[in-house]
Design a protein around this nucleic acid. Structure first.
Lengths: 128, 128
DNA sequence: ACTATCTATAACGTTAACGTAATGGTTAGG
DNA sequence: CCTAACCATTACGTTAACGTTATAGATAGT
């Protein structure tokens, strides 16, 4: 009993706009969507699951392109273990980049704090 | 004795393309640039200093818009302390966002590792 | 004088992830 | 039957930070 739904309900349930659904659909992120004779698309529970998964992966910083490369693994495998492994690989790269930025960021922060302290010291010395 | 230079030398010394220089210049990031009667722009040591500062701030993740809001502080104040303070504020926001992403990222990583371990366990149990 | 190289300006192209019309068919309720 | 509300398709708009022509004048070296 797959409860079919139109794009309005689907997008509301997924917390996105219809435009976003159509965008993902056009990119092929939602798999095959059947279209009735009236022109309407009917989405299934699977569509909703995909949207939710996409949102999850987006929150993790994956681009739609990266998501496209892994989303099918989530819905072809029962264990979803391949999908998880590939996501892990992508996240690993993101993590490395993040760590690098974080490092230079904190380092710069220290430099600035040091400079400010030094300048403050000079000010103190000049005003008795 | 300000050694003037053309855009070619300037961009080479700053490690950017002429197009980038013109882009920054048009945004007003380089201050006033004098233009001679032949149509050429002559850049000074100050221009180079600004480009280097811009590159530094970019590496820290500031957008050109954010840089625009602080770059003048670096070249109007001798201590440059106001500029540093404002950069610190901006970096603080970036740091918070980065920390949030980092948190959900590591959390998700743990979830996945946990799931993978659980699945592996199930596999082990089924094959004696 | 001629050619290679440099410079200026204007303007369109690019990437990502949709937003925003514009136009027109569909359906449900009164 | 009529209108409100929903749906589809097409296509241009948006942000950031330049890249990439295209056109044309300026300069240096031989």
């Amino acid at each position: 009993m797959e409860q079919k739904m139109l794009i309005g309900e689907l997008s509301r349930r997924a917390g996105v706009t219809p435009r976003t659904v159509r965008h993902y659909q056009q990119m092929g992120l939602l798999g095959n969507i059947e279209q009735e004779s009236n022109g309407y698309h009917y989405y299934t529970h699977n569509s909703l699951q995909r949207l939710i998964k996409i949102n999850t992966l987006k929150k993790l910083g994956l681009s739609l392109e990266e998501i496209e490369s892994v989303i099918h693994l989530y819905f072809e495998e029962p264990t979803m273990i391949k999908g998880k492994q590939k996501v892990l690989e992508i996240l690993q790269k993101h993590l490395e980049e993040t760590d690098e930025k974080l490092e230079s960021l904190t380092q710069f922060k220290q430099e600035i704090l040091f400079n400010m302290a030094r300048i403050q010291l000079m000010i103190d010395e000049m005003s008795p």
